[in-house]
Every structure is written in C-alpha cells, then in structure tokens.
Amino acid sequence: MTAQTILQVDKLSIALRLKGQGFPAVSNLSFSVERGEVFGLVGESGCGKSLCALTIAGLLRDPLHVTGGRIDFDGQDINRLSNRDMRRLRGNRVAMIFQEPMTSLNPLMTIGDQIGEMFELHENMSRRQARLKAVESLEQVQVPSPERRIRDYPHQLSGGMRQRVMIAIALACNPALLIADEPTTALDVTIQAEIVELILDLCKARGTAVLMISHDLGLVARICNRVAVMYAGSIVEERAASEVFVDPRHPYTQGLLASLPRLGRRLQEGRKPLMEIKGVVPALTERGPGCGFAPRCSKATDICWADMPAATALSGSGKIRCYHHG
C-alpha cells in the first residue's frame, strides 16, 4: 500500500448467515483504488459487487456479515473505527450513489433539505447556511434554476434529475472516494451518458476517486483506468481497462466480451445467434470448493473443481485467478 492508495481491500469475505448456517457470498476479495483514479468493478447480477460496495461504506446489514479480511481507507482499518468515527467518514469522505434514484431520496423532504443535511452533519452549518450551500451544489450538478428547485420534493423531479440530486448529495463534502453502484442502470439511455460525464467531471475537479460498479462493459471500458471482473464472489481478473477489453485472459472475461453484440456484425458474418456463456451463475448455496466458474468453463479440468486458483500476477500488469489462463 502506497500513500497514493485511498482504498485497499484485502482478502475481504462476506457471508450470508441464515439460521446458523453461513453461505459465503464474497470470498478473498482484494483490490486497491488509487487517489483520483476511476476503478471499475464489473460482473453480472448477484456476483457480490454491490455487497462489496456496501461493506466499504459500512452499510452491510443483517443477515450479511463480514467474515474476514480488512478494508483500509486512507491508511485506516475501517473495521477498527468506532461507530462515531465511521459516521464521520461516511458521507464526508466516502460517499455513495445508488442504483435507484426513484426511491433513494426521502419522499417527504425537500431536496434542498436533503442536500443541506450533508452540510449540517459534516460541516456544522445551520439549516439556513446549509440551504444556501445546497443551491450551490445543485448548480454544480447542472440542475436548472436551483434556487427554485431546492423547494421541490423528489416526486416533482424526473429520474435523471433525481440522480443529479443524489450526485449533489454524494459530492457535497468533497469526498475522497465515491462509490457509484450502477448509477445509470435505472435511467433512460439518452441521459446515461450525461450522468456519467457529470460524475467524472465533478470527481476529477475534486480529485475524488471513483469506484464504479457496473455490469455495463462498454461503460467501464470507456471511463475506467483499471477494471476488476467479478464472478461468483471473487475477482477473476484485474487489469488496466485498456488491456482487459483487447486481450481478455480469464475464460469468463473472454466469454463476456464474445457475448457482446456488435453493430455491423450481421452484415459481415450473416445472421447468427448471439454468443452466450452456457449455464447460469451458481446459487449461494451451491458453490463448491473450486473455481466458481468451473461449471460453465470449457477449459475446466479436475483441479478447477477441487481448488480455488490463487490470484497470480500476469506478465504485463494485473492479476488473474485461473489455472488455464493465457
């Protein structure tokens, strides 16, 4: 870990505990995010990427528990922080944007109050001062006529506008790390790009690092410096974004990229069905001791079923978990 590292996740494991039984949902997850960097965490639904995000923000709730590993934020082990210190961190230094702008805002509070709350909580401002700052924040996320808008309630705004408000809330106190958990998934395609640009611009101006969680490979390839691909609770490949999409090494990443529909392919190759990775993601209760991807992998051998491959460094840069990479 260097001074440039803002977030270091080391062998993090999370389990779902039901009736005394534990089911590992995330196991031995390790990655780090540098200051000011945009780091992508991709994977399909249920692979554990959102759990990872919630854990970093200290928001994991029963029946999910951290069962091992540590998370260092800015050199501090967050598991050792008191509730009070964790609260000071949350919102102030680590902020989050969620997937559902429609339900993530309190329906009975004006958006001015909801943004202003950040200044009340972390900068000890009075409600009046906080309101003035809220106008500024709204202006920064390019909401038109912010002085009028702060009196609006969430139901009076469109989905895109609400996500802008969420961004204003998240970036209000200039956090060092922004966790964006699928920030554009629930939005219309036409505004997705706008919202992503907005997040990136504002974070760049503030030197805020972004942990971008997404299942949109195209988006991640375009905006991230480095990417970690998750499958069934583990990171299977971690590389520079420019490399992973050109030369994927893990069979899962290869399968994912091959499944992407490409414009013009039909003209070149004629009509054929889209590629897909055969099989489904194993349920939490059905995960064996070996590589999580083995059941769907064409290269799988006996060892893949028996033992989880360790993360090994690739010759260039990056890491991979596979016995048969290359």
């Binding site: 928001l59 961190l89 919102g91 989050m96 993530s104 309190n106």
Partner: peptide
C-alpha cells in the same frame, strides 16, 4: 427497509436522527 433510509445512513446520519428525521 426503504432505499432512502439506506441513503440517510450513507450520509453519515446517526441512528437516532434517521429515526426522527427520516
């Protein structure tokens, strides 16, 4: 279990304040 309560928590609210204000 509402999403906006999770948001309130992610803002750094105390549990008491979450109950009272949100």
């Amino acid at each position: 279990n509402a999403d906006f309560i999770r948001t309130a928590r992610s803002k750094g609210n105390t549990e008491t304040r979450i109950v009272v204000r949100h």
